[in-house]
């Protein structure tokens, strides 16, 4: 049996493909949960960091800056292990939630830097126009600045999301059954007795997810850029 035939066999044999789909589901659940958490955290942290200096903001500003520094300065794998066996090692705490928290918290630090840059890149005149109409700082941010910032940073957020999805492949370290773990499992002696084929299959799955996301982001970008173009055709 050559490589291609083995690959086809893998995709068409229930005992091989079912573990894959189970792993795929886990990868998607962690990625989706973590990216949503990362986005929310990223926006909140960015808002804290760009807020004007004041007594009330002093402590939040310190906390967020420590958060970003620590998360960006340490390996994801260590963060995951520390979260799983240290901070969240509460009896009965679901591993899936642990993973979502670990990856979401990690992603939030990177996303916050992107969003902060995106907010600062929005012309200050937009904020001034909003405030001059009597809108509050919050409303001006929410309705005017953040939508423009998100549009500006959508490509880099997309990259973050893609990196996050691939990074989740280390969750087997804390004993979770994701797409990569499924590939190892299927390739183990009791099943296919070859690692190359299932690993390739897993790679194809990751590639498909990433491709879909890239496509989705492009679509979203196109929609958000509706207001940018001078003419409808260019």
């Amino acid at each position: 049996m050559n490589f291609a035939e083995k690959l086809v066999e893998l995709f068409s044999t229930e005992k091989y493909i079912l573990p894959f789909l189970e792993g795929l589901k886990m990868t998607l659940v962690i990625s989706l949960g973590a990216s949503l958490l990362g986005l929310v955290l990223g926006i909140v942290v960015a808002l804290v960091q760009i807020a004007p200096k004041s007594k009330a903001m002093a402590v939040p500003k310190i906390i967020t800056s420590v958060y970003v520094t620590v998360i960006r300065g340490t390996p994801m794998a260590l963060q995951l292990i520390i979260m799983a066996f240290g901070i969240l090692a509460i009896k009965g705490f679901p591993l899936t939630v642990t993973a979502i928290l670990a990856f979401g918290i990690n992603s939030g630090a990177y996303v916050s830097e992107n969003i902060r840059g995106g907010i600062l890149s929005v012309d200050i005149g937009q904020t001034e126009a909003g405030r001059a109409l009597g809108l509050s700082r919050g409303t001006t941010m929410r309705k005017i600045v953040i939508p423009q910032a998100i549009k500006n940073v959508l490509p880099s957020i997309g990259n973050e999301l893609i990196a996050l999805i691939k990074e989740t492949s280390i969750v087997s370290m804390i004993g979770m059954y994701d797409l990569t773990m499924a590939a190892k499992d299927v390739g183990s002696g009791s099943k296919l007795a070859s690692y190359v084929v299932p690993m390739t299959a897993a790679a194809v799955f990751y590639l498909a997810i990433v491709y879909l996301i890239t496509f989705g982001i492009k679509l979203l970008e196109k929609r958000l850029r509706a207001g940018d173009k001078r003419s409808k055709t260019v």
Binding site: D123, G125, Q126, E128, A129, G130, R131, A132, L133, G134, L135, S136, K143, I144, P147, Q148, K151, L224, G227, D228
Partner: peptide, 30 residues
């Protein structure tokens, strides 16, 4: 200050129309 601004409009040199909104949305937002 927000109440004062709402009662005293401002027109800028560089217009500062909200780039993410249509004309009508610009006008009805506030």
């Amino acid at each position: 200050e927000d109440a004062a601004r709402a009662r005293m409009g401002m027109v800028f040199q560089h217009f500062n129309l909200f780039a993410n909104m249509t004309v009508l949305q610009n006008l009805t937002l506030a």
